[in-house]
Design a protein around this nucleic acid. Structure first.
Lengths: 150, 150
DNA sequence: TATTGTTATACTCTATAACTATA
DNA sequence: TATAGTTATAGAGTATAACAATA
């Protein structure tokens, strides 16, 4: 029996013209692919981001990490709890300031990150596979103009 | 006294090259501006999206709305509870199928949406103010290629 | 049997405020 | 006094599973 209230084509109105709507859809797709790409590692963009920043800035303190990844200090605590529980990161006592922690990747953390990098590369490629090289550059530039943040 | 662990420039590593990172930043900016733009109305992109879709498809049922805005049916229940509590939407009993609700904007809902539209217009303009008209078109196209969804 | 809306529940992500230890 | 990290707590936002009414 055919449906009474026939669903099929719902009119999205002006939504598709809104940047925020586009971004949300794009992000849903990105997140889903990210998780698949990193599969067994139980990774999320946020955990991965923390690993990357710590690797690039060994010894940085939590407050700085928080600013870098745009999270509250308290939020970073739980990110690090997760990472430390998985033995990917260690919190060393700050040398000069004993209030702070000096964050570093463990050997395991470095190894995982190294393994992850090519997968993230693939992930990135998959996302933009419908774009030419120049389109990819353009997209990055345009997004950068909306929110400059390198 | 100057800071010991000098924060300032944290290296974000490869993050700025990742589409997901760019999208997240862009979305943070969009959301913040959206809330400011709609200010007094206590709006969110998600509530606004529901209003738009209901206006464009009066009488649609919750399941269809859920599919349209890519939320679970159960999630849509709470969205509609909020909207109905604010008297912006009504759930009418389905005519042909009494299991379903036929969703409609109330007069208040239509009015609010009408008032909101120019503000959303401004909001959108503000976001892309650093882009030329052609760049705006390009951006929409490129995002559409990554996640085609009109 | 299947679908619609709903509830109960839970999980993730995030922030605010207050605490402690250090400075 | 001020800062670093932490805890306790709470609020969005989301989903899954099970349920009653209806098909």
């Amino acid at each position: 029996m055919a449906k009474k209230t026939d669903s099929q084509q719902i009119d999205l109105g002006l939504l598709p013209t809104l940047l925020g709507y586009r971004l949300r859809l794009a992000q849903l797709a990105v997140f889903a692919d990210f998780v698949v790409s990193t599969g067994s590692a139980q990774m999320t963009p946020s955990l991965f981001g923390a690993l990357v920043v710590i690797e690039a800035n060994p010894g940085l303190k939590q407050t700085d990490l928080a600013r870098a990844v745009r999270l509250d200090r308290s939020t970073v605590v739980s990110v690090l709890d997760t990472l430390e529980k998985r033995q990917l990161v260690i919190r060393k006592r700050g040398l000069t300031d004993r209030r702070s922690n000096a964050l570093e990747l463990t050997a395991t953390g470095k190894q995982l990150l190294a393994e992850l990098l090519p997968r993230i590369e693939d992930h990135e490629q998959r996302l933009v596979q419908n774009l030419s090289a120049s389109e990819q550059t353009t997209l990055a530039q345009l997004l950068g103009k909306i929110f400059p943040a390198d």
